[in-house]
Design a protein around this nucleic acid. Structure first.
Lengths: 219, 219
DNA sequence: AGTATTTTTTAGGTTTGTCTAAATTTATTT
DNA sequence: AAATAAATTTAGACAAACCTAAAAAATACT
């Protein structure tokens, strides 16, 4: 396993993310995301091309090679595992974990990450609801939607709570609504858009306001 | 709180360690420890001097200023907390933690370290038995000695197991001898140098061979 | 199609942290 | 105390990763 600089890793990770939206990534796009100048991007693309991590032809944009994708998924795995650790174990707020994980993700030691994964019990989603790649780079793909958009009788899994205010979290705690739980919408009430949902074989009614803050993935 | 590069941090940390042995640190000493050339050390000393982290006069060696010492203790705190985390939570072997902690120690986020410290329950010693500086840079100072050198009836705390072989660890587990435990030697048997010790208010007899692998600190 | 605009690349420079080789200072030896 | 050896510093170079300004290519516009 080769080693990459923090800078190279940030490029690979960011290209990966941009690639899922647009197939082809452009110099300016990447420059903006990385808060760097276009000239710097060109420099790095030449370098990553010689390392066979991106396909790049001058003026034509670029995309990751399959090797580049593999590396990027490894970085994303580290980032999201650390985010999960920070939120779950160290009790960081949901909106504080990203910044710290940006640093931790560059500590590259395979054994560390695999043991961390094991310690955390192989979590499938990070605190933002984004899927965590497993040891082989595989992850859940289902698009994330708000619970209020979930069609009736489709089973889904809670993967993300948008608003992390104390009040909302307390409310969720009380109703025992947790990330990872399986959920089905049984009825929708048009009067106030409240929902009747099934969770752990129990029926609950929740407000539209709450449903909008609960994000789920089809399962 | 200013920020330091990984390189600067490694210099500060290493000077700190060398300083506890020799009061004055020399260019060649530091070069050897850091696997760098003497010329590089001189360069960095000039830089650290302008930042008021070391006292340095050409050809005269150097030592940390009190500010430099404060920074160094912060880095050592991070290093040892991560070592503890790796051994205690992720079940790394005692002899594998240093290398990984060398990387983790440079992730600088005060909140991260303080929350980690709290999560680990403010450990006082790392898996090598070295004391962990607290949030103010204070740490246990007592010299570490082998249990076989501990005078009779002096209370001490176990802080380090030298030999981490499976057999020894099993043996310690069986006798419930753990790092952090309070221990007193009640009798020494000259025949085979075995010891009668008091641990958790129970009396045990242990061999000299075992006692030599158990390190303790007064207090 | 021809011009203007935007995007991207090239050329050359800067900073950080390293290096080698030569010069200088300090220490040791006779 | 002079000569030799060892330690340290200076001078000049280099790679990585960035930058600015200018040039070149691609795109958009009348």
């Amino acid at each position: 396993m080769l080693n990459f600089s923090t800078s190279e890793e940030n490029y690979l990770k960011t290209i990966y993310h941009l690639q899922t939206k647009d197939d082809n990534v452009t110099t300016n796009e990447l420059a903006e995301k990385l808060h760097a100048r276009p000239a710097s991007i060109t420099d790095m693309m030449k370098k990553l091309k010689t390392r066979k991590l991106v396909n790049y032809q001058p003026y034509q944009g670029f995309r990751l090679t399959s090797e580049g994708k593999k590396i990027a998924l490894g970085i994303i795995r580290r980032h999201r595992l650390w985010e999960y650790f920070l939120a779950e174990k160290l009790k960081f707020n949901w909106d504080e974990v990203h910044e710290v994980a940006e640093q931790l993700e560059h500590v590259s030691n395979k054994k560390l990450i695999d043991k961390l994964d094991e310690y955390l019990d192989h979590p499938k989603f990070d605190p933002h609801g984004d899927p965590i790649p497993d040891i082989n780079g595989k992850m859940e793909t289902g698009k994330q939607i708000s619970l209020s958009e979930l069609p009736i009788n489709k089973t889904a899994r809670i993967c993300f709570i948008a608003n992390q205010s104390g009040l909302l979290l307390e409310h969720l705690n009380e109703k025992k609504i947790n990330i990872g739980a399986s959920i089905v919408v049984k009825r929708k009430f048009n009067f106030d858009d409240s929902l009747e949902i099934k969770l752990d074989n129990k029926l609950l009614t929740i407000s539209d306001q709450l449903a909008k803050n609960i994000f789920v993935k089809h399962g």
